[in-house]
């Protein structure tokens, strides 16, 4: 019985640490992106000032975006708050916060898709073993879907020097 309890605790710790590591990575990366960003863009219907310290984080995502017409696949980190979605894409120089009212959905794996004019729109991504499909979730926009080959994404992660990722969870970047 004692051994079983130890086993349970160990399983719990492993599970928690895995989730925490994604959270820690995303928070650290978001802080880094914010320190180098030149634009902080909030999509809102309100006039008030956004204070992230008063927002309530719920979930954390680290993903690979699709490639756009003028850009390659990039790493995206996103934090889903009770109040909205915060995300940034490596190298974009911008951090975005979409209030809930500006999002079509709050459910799914959050990433971003590029626009032709060099902005990034919030997107949810679904995938199987071959293809990742990204759908824009910004409100008041026409249906916008990007697809990306999973093998290309795996190769991209290797090219980026990401060593520890689960090849079966791509475009989610999760520890193996």
């Amino acid at each position: 019985m004692k051994a079983f309890i130890y086993f349970l605790v160990l399983v719990c710790l492993c599970g928690c640490s895995k989730k925490l590591s994604t959270k820690d990575y995303v928070v650290e990366k978001m802080n880094k992106d914010m320190s180098s960003a030149v634009r902080f863009i909030r999509l809102t219907e309100a006039d008030d000032t956004l204070d992230l310290s008063k927002c309530h984080p719920i979930d954390y995502f680290r993903t690979l975006t699709p490639a756009g017409r003028y850009c390659d696949m990039s790493e995206c980190v996103a934090i889903l708050y009770k109040e909205g979605l915060l995300y940034s894409v490596s190298g974009s120089g911008a951090v975005y916060f979409f209030d809930n009212s500006m999002l079509k959905t709050r459910y799914g794996i959050f990433s971003a898709i590029p626009t032709d004019d060099n902005y990034w729109m919030p997107a949810t991504v679904t995938f199987d073993e071959y293809v990742a499909a990204y759908e824009c979730v910004a409100n008041k926009t026409n249906r916008l879907i990007y697809t990306e080959n999973i093998d290309r994404q795996r190769q991209k992660l290797i090219d980026m020097g990401v060593k520890d990722f689960d090849p079966y969870s791509v475009p989610l970047i999760e520890p193996n």
Partner: peptide, 17 residues
């Protein structure tokens, strides 16, 4: 993160233009 000042926009069109 809490020190960051966001610019409010009502649409991506407004962000762009």
């Amino acid at each position: 993160m809490s020190r960051v000042q966001f610019e409010n926009y009502s649409s991506m069109k407004e962000v762009k233009e």
